[in-house]
């Protein structure tokens, strides 16, 4: 890309502003990411045989146990419900509070605090295109160069 072209792209980006829905989507994605167990792929995913290899559970015969133990795979099939399904079921198991959903604490009585998305120190400014917080011209520059509208969410 030539300098002039990239300049033009920058101009166009300057005028772009994320709408409210996109900002909320971004915020939700950020919170969901805090729940994730892994951010990379299973390093053994390409090992086709890994499932067939006798797992610890099968190879370890306990002398005190008379009957043959059922496999881990059996219990995966036997008790297969997702978190969402279980929450839904709970509406009939514990229809009235107190229950899992009602136990969640409400928002704080104290005002929200804002921190610079770049350096983590308190921030007094909001980025106009995306709504992120920043504390200084320097951090704003880093933010525009690295995140801001470069993220698609």
């Amino acid at each position: 890309m030539s300098a002039r072209e990239s300049g033009r792209v920058k101009e166009a980006e300057k005028r772009r502003v994320l709408d409210d829905a996109a900002r909320k989507r971004r915020a939700r994605k950020a919170i969901e990411a805090l729940e994730q167990d892994n951010f990379h792929e299973d390093p053994h995913a390409d090992l086709v045989m890994s499932k067939k290899v006798p797992k610890f559970a099968d190879s370890n015969e306990k002398p005190t146990r008379k009957k043959k133990s059922k496999s881990a795979e059996y219990y995966k099939m036997r008790f297969r419900k997702t978190f969402a399904q279980l929450v839904e079921e709970d509406a009939s198991f514990r229809p009235d509070p107190p229950n899992y959903l009602s136990a969640q604490v409400p928002p704080s009585q104290f005002p929200d605090r804002y921190f610079c998305a770049v350096c983590g120190f308190p921030s007094n400014y909001t980025c106009i295109p995306c709504g992120a917080r920043y504390c200084s011209v320097r951090c704003l520059g880093t933010h525009l160069d690295t995140r801001c509208l470069k993220w698609t969410a």
């Binding site: 167990d37 990379h40 792929e41 299973d42 559970a57 795979e73 297969r80 997702t82 978190f83 279980l86």
Partner: peptide, 29 residues
């Protein structure tokens, strides 16, 4: 480095029973 986790629990509840069974078998052995 780069450890990959397989956890029986999701959002604080026991969801992945095959994983839990494998870990329990280990614990009780």
């Amino acid at each position: 480095s780069g450890l990959f986790y397989i956890l029986p629990f999701q959002k604080g509840f026991l969801i992945n029973w095959d994983t839990q069974k494998t870990v329990w078998d280990y614990m009780f052995s």
